[in-house]
Design a protein around this nucleic acid. Structure first.
Lengths: 371, 371
DNA sequence: CAATTTTTGGCAATCGCTTGTCATTGCTGT
DNA sequence: ACAGCAATGACAAGCGATTGCCAAAAATTG
């Protein structure tokens, strides 16, 4: 290593100078690097260690690592080698402090244990990782307050936000959107850039499917009142059923969990409907369980259509007819939209709206209407 | 607001001073705060803005907010009010830079879409949040390499790590544990502090259950070869079946996904066993689907016992007999163990090992052995 | 009321990195 | 061989907090 350095120094004629500097540093600290490392083995190498080892200034190291084009290839390679040798990782804190960016995006979901969000999380994670960002996952527990709180508290620690199925009011959302870059998933596009999963059009497919099976009395089982998707689905349901002159009912709102399925099932049965379109699969699966308990056969006595095609929809009993959508892709697209806003220089079409297609996946929970 | 300030100033007689300071600042910047905010609306208030508004030094603000005991109550309240008024949130970056801690813990899981980890993630999230920490979620995609990589890359950005079902070798793990504080879940306790879910004892319960139903030919369906839990379960299975003089088989390893269930089911059927103990529920549910396709009835022709009692185990068809454990609690305990290491001053028993109890939950996938 | 102890709060250095400014180097063309 | 230019790298000033040290103020005591 010494011979390497000397070789370098003869080329660069900086050896004396850096020797002197090093000497000074040592005197200031009254301890050598080795001693330092010895006394605190956990000490992380800094950009200065790299600069010293490579025989250049710290600014050169910085530029070599974060703006490779601006530095001589040979020098850059030398620096990279030094960095590798020291196992150097830049401190994201320090980097963020001076650059003003954290290279971090917060993803807020209402319920981390709801399988619907897994794929969003995973999709977002993939895309973020590819862009060198870190994902901060926050479970807002279906609470608008926690969501607003997280948005405030993390203002400084995230460059942007992905709000999946936000529970905020339009006003709150608009305020948040004004303060920091954010992209919503399944939320009115007017307020902020958004990725919408086109379940309304799937509702139409579902109704067509049910009608073709002879159903005329159909019940909408509603999800959370603060959910924009729920409102949209309900709207589509109303519009479409009115056009077809069907007899409709609605029950709810219910929390989107399997445990709410029992109440939802009982309420739906009580309406006298022969088919249900359910806010989401979680609720639908819960209903399936309750109906089975009560001896109501699915689909012979009652048809059920869920929404989202989550993990479990294919192996529940009976397997659930549901409206499937490319959820992971929605997560990816949301991140792309956010990143193109965060780094406009990389261009990318800054769309304000992306619509994900959906389709009906027919399984065994729907059948001919009871005669 | 002006009147508020004047009231304060008359009490504290600092008004003139802060006026002067403010004036100086303005001259330096040749722009007022208002102008500044106008030209960059996203600008975040800093500790200096708070100090100025409260008429104290930045160090006082810092102490007032992070070490309330060391500052006069009146002053502190004034500072707090100023902070609230400006909607001030300290920059975690800057804070981290000087304090050397990020108040962040990274949680590494092999597969974010595996429901087993949901509860771990949620448990960890809860506990971390309560302690004022932020969770960084990383999906290592069942890859030891990605895991090691994340461990390296995030060395600087996380104060500690939770490794759920680590795929690292013992040597890699030991090296990582030497470099940074970490707690493992379901991993040999010798290397690092760990939370173990006591599935081996559940295996015994499961075998008892199967034997009492008349099964004598039992197959172990194995999970990933690099999984420590798989090894432990296999070990327990061998020990216990040897003692009971049962005829045993084993198939695998299989990736722990429902999609591997088909291969696993076929292999298990081929052995001629009448009951299977399966590495985890994901695999077991996949097997259930395949057996149904092949017309092999569960439990009449073949009994299946899963492991973990994940989301879905209760509503698959037939509902799965499985070994249940308090997974969310495991996540919480892991975080507690990590935090007590990170902040020894708050004491807390620094255990190196926590064992989570498990029990067999009997559902419809097990029944009497075919005669 | 003076002397002493205890609080309280200001100054300035520091954390590790980025980035604007400017001097130096090496290369081109003539 | 030299002026002119581009490319490169050194220097130093921040970024926004924390914290040790010390002075000033307040509270306590004799």
């Amino acid at each position: 290593m010494t011979s390497d350095c000397q070789k370098l120094s003869s080329v660069l004629q900086l050896w004396d100078k850096s020797l002197v500097l090093e000497r000074l540093r040592q005197m200031r600290n009254t301890q050598t690097m080795a001693e330092l490392q010895l006394q605190s083995p956990g000490r992380q190498p800094t950009i200065r260690d790299v600069a010293e080892l490579a025989g250049v200034a710290t600014s050169t190291v910085s530029r070599a690592l974060s703006n490779p084009g601006r530095v001589n290839r040979v020098t850059r390679e030398r620096i990279e080698e030094a960095a590798a040798q020291l196992n150097y990782i830049p401190s994201s804190q320090a980097r963020g402090l001076s650059s003003g960016r954290t290279q971090t995006v917060a993803v807020l979901v209402p319920d981390i244990t709801n399988p619907f969000y897994f794929d969003i999380i995973r999709g977002a994670q993939h895309q973020l990782k590819a862009a060198g960002y870190t994902q901060l996952l926050v479970d807002t527990e279906e609470s608008a307050e926690m969501e607003a709180d997280a948005l405030q508290k993390m203002r400084r620690s995230a460059d942007g936000f992905i709000l999946a199925a936000s529970r905020l009011t339009d006003a709150q959302l608009a305020e948040a959107a004004a303060q920091q870059p954010l992209v919503t998933i399944n939320r009115a596009p007017a307020i902020a850039p958004t990725v919408v999963i086109d379940t309304p059009s799937a509702i139409i497919q579902a109704l067509e499917h049910l009608v073709s099976l002879g159903h005329t009395r159909i019940c909408f089982v509603g999800g959370p009142a603060t959910s924009w998707s729920n409102a949209k689905r309900w709207q589509a349901f109303q519009d479409e059923t009115a056009e077809r002159k069907l007899t409709t009912f609605s029950v709810g709102p219910f929390p989107p969990k399997t445990t709410s399925g029992a109440a939802a099932a009982d309420a739906a049965v009580h309406t006298g409907a022969t088919a249900c379109i359910v806010f989401n699969d979680l609720l639908a699966i819960g209903m399936l369980q309750r109906l089975r308990e009560r001896g109501i056969r699915v689909p012979e006595d009652m048809s059920i259509v869920g929404c989202d095609d989550i993990f479990g929809a294919d192996f529940c009993n009976p397997p659930l007819t549901t409206m499937a959508s490319p959820i992971e892709q929605a997560g990816r697209v949301a991140v792309s939209m956010l990143l193109s806003r965060l780094n406009p220089q990389y261009g990318g079409t800054s769309r304000r709206l992306a619509v994900m297609p959906t389709h009906l996946t027919v399984r065994a929970s729907t059948g001919a209407a009871p005669s």
